[in-house]
């Protein structure tokens, strides 16, 4: 099962390419990770919009990095609601893996996500390798998701359950009448 997941992740990852001109975070070990919003991303994203980030993981060392895995994390930073976000509904692309990343090579990946809830967020892509002892992480990228007027369950549920109930209750007088008839 895990192998299937990793294989799917590999399918989404772009092949290793030459280093892209992105500003990476200070390197921890041979890996460095740069993260920017993908081209075409909405300037003021709203709930329901799709937003994508683009990362470049570069091996700046002189030896290949084996068993590379990179993953995306999202935290909400609204005052009083600071919490990591469960990406289950937000993104189907949560990690990429690569068996080996040669010296000077980089791995590019896109991280598309559907914006589920309004709020202030920070996104980060982290990378680790099989033998590495330190975590490489991109700079935190902030973004804000604006509220959108969507369907509210507190309006829908009473109507959706109440109206059929009322109509069903209107059958009761007939049933009583029918019972009273000889």
């Amino acid at each position: 099962m895990v192998h299937l997941f990793l294989a799917a992740c590999l399918a989404f990852a772009a092949p290793p390419t030459a280093a892209a001109p992105l500003a990476p975070a200070p390197a921890a070990g041979p890996l460095s990770v740069a993260l920017v919003p993908a081209p075409g991303a909405p300037v003021r994203p709203r709930m329901g919009d799709r937003l994508s980030f683009h990362s470049v993981i570069r091996n700046g060392g002189e030896a290949p990095v084996e068993g590379l895995v990179a993953w995306v994390s999202l935290v909400r930073v609204d005052r009083g609601q600071e919490a990591p976000v469960d990406l289950e509904d937000w993104s189907a692309q949560k990690a990429v893996t690569l068996p080996s990343l040669g010296p000077g090579q980089s791995l590019e990946a896109d991280w598309p996500m559907r914006l589920i809830q309004a709020g202030d967020y920070r996104v980060v892509v982290s990378a680790a390798s099989r033998d590495g002892s330190a975590l490489a992480a991109s700079p935190l990228r902030p973004f804000t998701v604006a509220r959108r007027p969507v369907v509210e369950s507190r309006r829908v549920v009473p109507v959706a359950l109440g109206l059929p109930g009322l109509l069903a209750a209107s059958f009761l007088p007939w049933r009583r009448l029918r019972r009273r008839r000889p």
Binding site: M47, G48, D89, R114, I116, R148, P149, V150, V151, E152, S153, V156, V157
Partner: peptide, 12 residues
């Protein structure tokens, strides 16, 4: 509409 995350994000 309210039970599906995808449909729940539809504009009014």
């Amino acid at each position: 509409l309210v039970s599906s995350t995808e449909l729940g994000l539809l504009d009014r």
